[in-house]
Design a protein around this nucleic acid. Structure first.
Length: 854
RNA sequence: GGGCGGUUAGCUCAGCUGGUAGAGCACCUGCUUUACACGCAGGGGGUCGCAGGUUCGAGCCCUGCACCGCCCACCA
């Protein structure tokens, strides 16, 4: 830190470079600037630093991932925060790393194998896992390099991976601890089975999509009777696994049948007719077939009524031996054949199109097959309750706050979390079984069974849900469970920024695990940023071809412009991508570059940067610097990045460049040496401030220009954020400036129409030099004038048109002032303003009338 | 089915605790001004989704409706 790279006053080399480049060229300089920061060690956090810590843990991207728009936006947000806090004097740490992403990564490698004509079973578990590691070492974490291109100040020297040995230790520790508390248990339950992943997945990994299926109505004969029950199903193949027919207990139509026996078609199984509240009498015929083995609802009913749980569909998505003549068929084939048979038997009553929501695996897109299997579950209630409380009490705050509903909605259901996955890539469950059916759970591999001492132990082959390990991210990345100073210093963190789709999947679980294992919430503020859609409003996705690669934007516009544009787009819930925003960023960067060229090439760079106190315009710009700095920091503190970026733009472009710099030119190019020095000093000071305030958003160009500034300086990234204490704010002066600018605009408009304009300015008019530049504008200073007065030599038609406008304005103001309600309830200032308006219009109308009659 | 959010200028979006609608882009008209044409100055363009209500006053508050998006959800 504190590395000086600028030898002193601006060198001739810098001068030449500034003169040569009237356009800023980001691609040429950004990588080198990044290098400077990196070699100066500015990304490392020092646990021994006396500064207060500020910590963000990056949502770890998938190790196989590529930087997409969401990453880029989130990177821009987090980096703006980290850089601002660093400049504000915090010891900042932006935790860096990647996620092993069990299913997703395993799928990538399996796909590779398939190209070689192999499956993972050909390799065997050990070799397969080694192959995944090999892949990760060779191609993995490319995304981390891409974050560098964006300029993100992550702590690259402590990059973590959720499969690191230390991280694995943390996961094991957590598993064992939760098991010993009785929160993890193994059970045979119905789970969401993804046939192509060949694994169970949790409820949250199921995506519901609307699909049109056929609803079949099928007759089930009632034994020893002429009656039949008609049931409806979209999955006729599961008829083979039916173990009951259910009706509602209050349904008078079927009351007499409850307790009797129905005959399942095709298999001719005799099953009980039961009564259960779950059945909706108004749906279809009011009778339901019950298949505990293949439907989550039926499973619950089955457990309530002690029904057998038959399974006809296997884990491979094909019909198993229980399906008799249908064994070996795929589900779809079986469905067709079963329907055929029903038709032959004359038991098929109807086939209707039926639109409903169907679960799909969020990784493979396959339709979920609900199947009964032996899995590990996590009991949520004891973990979720304190986590809910943490948000209710405000220890964790969501931004925007409305997103807390998403969190509460899910959390308060306390549904068991299926944590085991039938994969090979991931954290293998630390559980060993002996032949006597005993279970040994330990952080290290046991030599013998904890109960019977048997040495014939077999480890549970399953791995844990990826989200189980990422739930530990905020502290496992800091070396937990090993006590150490980084953990001590940098937990808990402060901010988490992510998209809303993983609030329940990830954010909620980090809060739970943080509270459970550290006793403290992992962060205080959760920023839920917008999702950037494609320009046509569709989801940005590779497969739809609607994706835009942020790295291409960086190449084309530069990282600064891209970051600016993304932050500008980050405001609302969902935004459509518009390259206009990035364009705006590019233009702003260029503006900054050229304004700097003016200050550094045309000004006197031997003077010390300082705001002038003599000239009104210098005092005004100082006031604006203080105001804008304050406003921008305030907006970032509220996580309103779009607002902050907008304020930054207005400050740089309008206040500084359009108004101040233009006005200062008169002194800069004038004869008076003293004025020239004063203007230069103020310009340098403004530039310095402007660069610092813009740095969190546009780190590269600000750092580059900083390098051209005279004097010995640290890198801008390591420079303290400029304090506005001691900088005079002057609201009255700012108001007068607005008034002056309005008068100038008016004069310009009239002069533009070809009229001769006379502007009477009061003493202390701010931007006289701007007026004096204008053609056809005559400036008259009058000690009597209270406000600038713009008068023009106008033709009759112009005067008449203006009179019409003024009269209607006057009428409106008068109407308001004669409204009792307004006078009695409106605030006093408003009424005063209205009175003032009325009298001004009155005077103008009189003036116009007299000129017209003359 | 439940919840959340959106509907403001041709486009992308701002609009704080209710006080006569804003920005950028695009468009039109002038500027070969010595930082910048990725520029400067000026201008046109909106009955703020629809219908009611509260209020002296509503884009902002209330009710209902329509459409869009997202999250959650076990109705065969």
């Amino acid at each position: 830190m504190g590395q000086h790279y600028n030898p002193g006053l601006m060198t001739d080399g810098s001068r030449d470079e500034l003169e040569r480049r009237s356009r800023h060229d980001p691609a040429a300089v950004e990588p080198a600037l990044f290098q400077r920061w990196e070699s100066a060690g500015l990304f490392d956090a020092d646990p021994k630093s006396p500064k207060p810590p500020f910590v963000i843990a990056v949502p770890p991207p998938n190790v196989t991932g590529e930087l997409h728009m969401g990453h880029a936006l989130n990177g821009a947000i987090q980096d703006a925060l980290i850089r601002l806090r660093k400049m504000q004097g915090y010891e900042t740490l932006w935790i860096c790393g990647t996620d092993h992403a069990g299913i997703a990564t395993q799928n990538v490698i399996e796909k590779e194998l398939r190209k070689e004509g192999l499956t993972r079973y050909d390799l065997g578990r050990e070799a397969f896992v080694e192959r995944v590691w090999e892949w990760c070492r060779q191609y993995g974490a490319a995304i981390i390099q891409q974050y560098k291109r964006l300029g993100c100040s992550l702590d690259y020297s402590h990059e973590r991976f959720t499969m690191d040995p230390e991280y694995q230790r943390a996961v094991t520790e957590v598993f064992v601890s939760l098991y010993r508390k009785g929160l993890l248990y193994r059970d045979n339950r119905i789970v969401n089975w993804c046939p192509s992943c060949a694994s169970a997945i949790s409820d949250l990994e199921v995506q519901h999509q609307e699909e049109t299926d056929v609803l079949f109505e099928v007759r089930y004969p009632v034994k020893d009777s002429d009656e039949v029950l008609t049931v409806a199903t979209v999955r006729p193949e599961t008829i083979l696994a039916d173990t009951a027919v259910a009706v509602h207990p209050d349904d008078l139509r079927y009351l007499h049948l409850v307790g009797k026996t129905a005959i399942v078609p095709i298999v001719n199984r005799e099953v009980p007719i039961i009564a259960d509240d779950y059945v909706k009498p108004e749906f279809g015929s009011g009778a339901v077939k019950i298949t505990p083995g293949h439907d989550p609802n039926d499973f619950e009913i089955g457990r309530r009524h002690g029904l057998p749980e038959l399974t006809v569909i296997g884990f491979d998505g094909r019909m198993n031996d229980e399906a008799g003549e249908f064994a070996g068929l795929t589900v779809e084939e079986a469905r067709r054949r079963v329907v055929e048979r029903l038709r032959e038997l004359g038991l098929l009553v109807a086939e209707k199109p039926y639109v409903h929501e169907v679960g799909h695996c969020d990784r493979s897109g396959d339709r979920i097959e609900p199947l009964i299997s032996l899995q590990w579950f996590c009991e949520m209630r004891p973990l979720a309750e304190p986590a809910v409380e943490a948000v209710r009490s405000g220890r964790v705050r969501f931004h925007p706050k409305s997103q807390e509903n998403t969190y509460f909605n899910w959390m308060e259901q306390y549904r068991p979390w299926c944590v085991s996955r039938q994969l090979w890539w991931g954290h293998q469950i630390p559980v060993w079984y002996c032949p006597n059916g005993h279970v040994t759970v330990d952080t290290t591999e046991p030599e013998r069974c904890a109960e019977c001492g048997s040495t014939e132990l077999e480890r549970d082959p399953d791995v844990l849900d990826t989200w189980f390990s990422s739930a530990l991210w905020p502290f496992a990345t800091l070396g937990w469970p090993e006590p150490n100073e980084r953990l001590e210093r940098f937990y808990p963190g402060h901010v988490l920024s992510t998209a809303r789709e993983i609030i329940n999947l990830w954010v909620s679980r980090m809060i739970m695990m943080g509270l459970e294992f550290q006793g403290e919430v992992p962060f205080e503020d959760v920023i839920i940023h917008s999702i950037i859609q494609a320009a046509d409003g569709r989801r940005m996705s590779k497969s739809l071809g609607t994706g835009i690669n942020p790295l291409e934007l960086v190449d084309e516009y530069g990282a600064d412009a891209t970051r600016y544009g993304l932050l500008k787009m980050s405001s609302t819930q969902d935004v459509r991508f518009s390259d206009g925003m990035i364009d705006e960023g590019q233009r702003l960067a260029n503006k900054l570059w050229n304004a700097s060229r003016l200050v550094l090439l045309k000004g006197d760079t031997t003077v010390a940067p300082a705001p002038g106190t003599a000239a009104l315009e210098d005092r005004w710009v100082a006031s604006r610097v203080a105001g804008a700095t304050d406003e921008i920091v305030r907006l970032i503190n509220r996580y309103d990045f779009a607002g902050a970026v907008k304020a930054l733009y207005a400050f740089i472009w309008n206040d500084v460049c359009d108004v101040y710099v233009e006005a200062a030119k008169a002194r800069l190019y004038g004869e008076d040496e003293k004025e020239r020095r004063e203007a230069s000093a103020t310009l340098l000071w403004v530039l310095e401030r402007m660069l610092a305030v813009a740095h969190p958003v546009m780190p590269f160009i600000t750092e580059e220009i900083w390098g051209f500034m005279p004097g010995e300086r640290d890198l801008l990234m390591a420079t303290p954020f400029p304090s506005i204490e001691g900088v005079q704010r002057d609201p009255q002066l700012e108001r007068r400036a607005e008034e002056a600018m309005a008068a100038i605009s008016e004069a310009r408009r009239l002069a533009g129409e070809g009229q001769e304009v006379e502007v009477t300015i009061p003493p202390g008019f701010l931007f006289r030099s701007l007026l004096e530049k204008e053609k056809r504008v005559q400036v008259v200073e009058s000690p009597d004038a209270a406000v600038p007065i713009v008068a023009a030599q106008a033709d009759r038609a112009t005067l008449e048109a203006r009179l019409t406008v003024v009269r209607s304005e006057l009428q409106r103001a008068r109407g308001k002032l004669s409204n009792d309600g307004f006078l009695s309830r409106a605030p006093a200032e408003l009424i005063d303003a209205e009175r003032e308006k009325a009298s001004r219009f009155e005077a103008e109308a009189a003036d116009l009338e007299s000129r017209l009659s003359a």
